[in-house]
Design a protein around this nucleic acid. Structure first.
Length: 492
RNA sequence: GGUUCCUUGGCCGAGUGGCUAGGCAACGGUCUGCAAAACCGUGUACGGCGGUUCGAAUCCGCCAGGGACCUCCA
């Protein structure tokens, strides 16, 4: 099974059998967040997507080193009035904070949100600000190889020169001539030989707070450099997988390839993976478009577009129900469908512990497992895996109601499979509040007692009392299910 | 304008040359004192028009509509 994982490589535009460079080990790099404001739903997607990859590779037995950076050196903004000002600096001015205070604040929020979504922390989470020297060294080597030039204390990548020897645009399917005729001319770029050249080092304007000394000027590293520098530092000159959002393909990842190739003669990355966008009313959800919903607001329901709050697990499940290379459209209806589906999945999971065993099975547990893993092996097709999981849900419920049978060994197998698939690989876990029991022993016993009284009322055919208890408890958020043996309850 | 991707039943969303995706919703049934939950059953879905083929939603062409990237962006 381990050698059957196929992933779609953006570089070749084909699904390829995944073979790590070093047997048994995987180097994975994913572009992390720029921490200058709260994370929104759109951000959740790549981190959940690659969390799934990380978890699955680990499950397959690989030793994975997962590096996901924090961009805490602001990137240039190109808004007309404020050109040259850095996103983090700008925000700092607005909030009267130190830039690193801004960084810390939003980094904390990001980490909290990721934990809520059950996104595992990466093996290494390097910060751009902590790797200025490495970035400068990378600039040195690109300069030495003749693929960059210095102007007024800034260093730019010479795309034309690079393209004479290599292909600039191979990842995004462009060629330099197309880029030349179609690149918009921007203000304040007179220093560059060509508009498509990009900065490796930028001299800081006097008001620019975030700055570091260098042999070229007091300034800051270019937009694309940190990923090239940090990925190879921790994963080696060549490593297995580089992931990120589709919108980063050009220019960010294209520039990363150019930088690595210019400094070491070949690309550092073997498999490029890109997740698609989350849309809202068919349009990309993005900070710059103003149509985003932050994760905190999704979790609290505090947003005009939200009919209610959605739990982190609902969000995670919603995202996993679409293939990572497809767009997924946000709507309350879709989210509520996911929420109910997830409840059903967890209910079946709970039922696993109470299933009656028979001498033989009438259901095919081995086949179910095989189908789920085949789906994940096919470019991480989580929606198909989940569809099969729901077949498993039906099996469980049918065994529970007596219309199907399961043997003891199959039941053990099914339990362990569900645990692995749902918790370990998909990273879904029941929300604490929704878990069985009130989390308070006295409360649990009180509810049990009241329901016991209701059961007695039912035995007396005192339907009025029985229904009153059910309605009242229901109003308090206690959901009651009558069973043959008596009752089950859970908190909503 | 250039590059590229997409259009699936009420909603979301897989798939792919012939065999039920799945979830949610809806309807009918079983169970139940009534519910809830669960189970069973019910949808002639693949943007339009042509073409290839024994057969296309799936391949090709054209048309219509939409998205992404080309500028910071997950």
């Amino acid at each position: 099974m381990k050698n059957q994982l196929v992933i779609y490589n953006t570089l070749t535009r084909k699904k390829e059998l995944f073979k790590p460079l070093v047997d048994g080990k995987v180097g994975l790099y994913v572009c992390g967040p720029t921490v200058y404001s709260d994370s929104h739903l759109g951000h959740a997607r790549p981190f959940i997507t690659f969390d799934l990859l990380f978890r699955y590779l680990t499950f397959l037995g690989y030793k994975v080193r997962y590096v996901r950076n924090i961009t805490d050196v602001g990137h240039l903004e190109n808004e007309a009035e404020e050109s040259g000002e850095d996103k983090i600096t700008k925000k700092a001015r607005v909030e009267q904070l130190e830039p690193m205070e801004v960084v810390q604040k939003y980094m904390n929020t990001f980490h909290r949100n990721m934990e809520q979504l059950d996104v595992l922390p990466p093996s290494i989470e390097p910060r751009a600000s902590g790797h200025i020297i490495e970035q400068q060294q990378l600039i040195d080597s690109i300069l030495k190889n003749g693929f960059a030039y210095e102007v007024n204390g800034s260093v730019y990548f010479d795309v034309e020169k690079y393209n004479e020897k290599y292909h600039y645009g191979k990842l995004s399917g462009r060629n330099l001539e197309d880029i030349r005729t179609n690149t918009r001319r921007l203000e304040g770029q007179d220093e560059k030989k060509n508009s498509f050249d990009f900065a490796l080092w930028k001299k800081a304007a006097p008001e620019h707070i975030m700055r570091w000394p260098s042999k070229w000027s007091d300034g800051f590293p270019g937009w694309h450099l940190e990923c090239s520098a940090m990925s190879t530092k921790y994963l080696g000159d060549v490593f297995d997988i580089h992931g990120g959002g589709m919108d980063l393909t050009f220019p960010h990842h294209e520039c990363e390839i150019a930088q690595s190739t210019a400094s070491q003669g070949r690309d550092a990355v073997r498999y490029w993976m890109h997740n698609n966008m989350i849309t809202i009313n068919g349009q990309k959800m993005a900070r710059s478009l103003g149509n985003f919903i932050t994760l905190d607001r999704l979790f609290s329901g505090n947003h005009e577009l939200l009919e209610k709050a959605y739990s982190p697990m609902t969000i995670r499940f919603f995202i996993l129900q679409a293939h990572y290379r497809s767009t997924i459209d946000f709507s309350n209806e879709a989210l509520q469908a996911s929420e109910k589906g997830l409840e059903r999945l967890f209910a079946a999971f709970d039922a696993l512990d109470k299933l009656p065993v028979s001498a033989e099975s009438s259901i095919d547990v081995a086949g179910l497992k095989e189908k789920c893993f085949a789906a994940l092996n096919d470019d991480l097709n989580s929606p198909i895996a989940i569809a099969h999981l729901f077949d498993g849900v039906r099996m469980i419920n049918s065994v529970k109601s007596g219309s199907e049978k399961i043997s003891e060994s199959d039941l053990e197998d099914l339990k362990s499979f569900f645990h692995t698939m749902v918790f370990e690989i998909l990273g879904l876990k029941p929300d604490a509040a929704a878990a069985q029991g009130a989390g308070n022993e006295i409360m649990d016993k009180v509810i049990d007692l009241v329901l016991q009284l209701r059961l007695e009322a039912k035995t007396r055919k005192d339907w009025a009392t029985a229904d009153k208890i059910r309605d009242e408890l229901s109003g308090l958020g206690v959901e009651i299910k009558d069973t043959k043996e008596g009752f089950e309850w859970s908190l909503k």
